[in-house]
């Protein structure tokens, strides 16, 4: 009983799919798929680029830079005092 019911349903589904294919022309569909693939790849590239960038940005500022700025600042203050 169940098998017979299924075999009756199947062609109906196929006809539905075929009708849908007839109604939409194939070229825009292919273009849509291609656009989607390009978009997905761009998203993937964007995500990886930002992940790489963030991995560096989240690191602590190396002490050598803070020391350097401290020295530059100090030199400038000393210079200002001398010229006063």
């Amino acid at each position: 009983m169940i098998d017979v019911h299924n075999s009756r349903d199947e062609p109906a589904v196929k006809i539905h799919v075929m009708n849908a294919k007839k109604n939409s022309s194939e070229a825009p569909e292919k273009a849509r798929v291609r656009r989607r693939d390009i978009r997905n790849a761009e998203t993937e590239i964007g995500l990886k680029l930002r992940a790489l960038y963030a991995s560096v940005q989240e690191e602590e500022i190396p002490a050598r830079f803070l020391d350097l700025l401290e020295k530059l600042d100090e030199a400038e203050r000393n210079h200002a005092q001398l010229s006063e």
Binding site: V56, I61, L69
Partner: peptide
Amino acid sequence: LIASLPKLRAF
């Protein structure tokens, strides 16, 4: 300048 350093390093 210090506040910009993490971004500058990332670049």
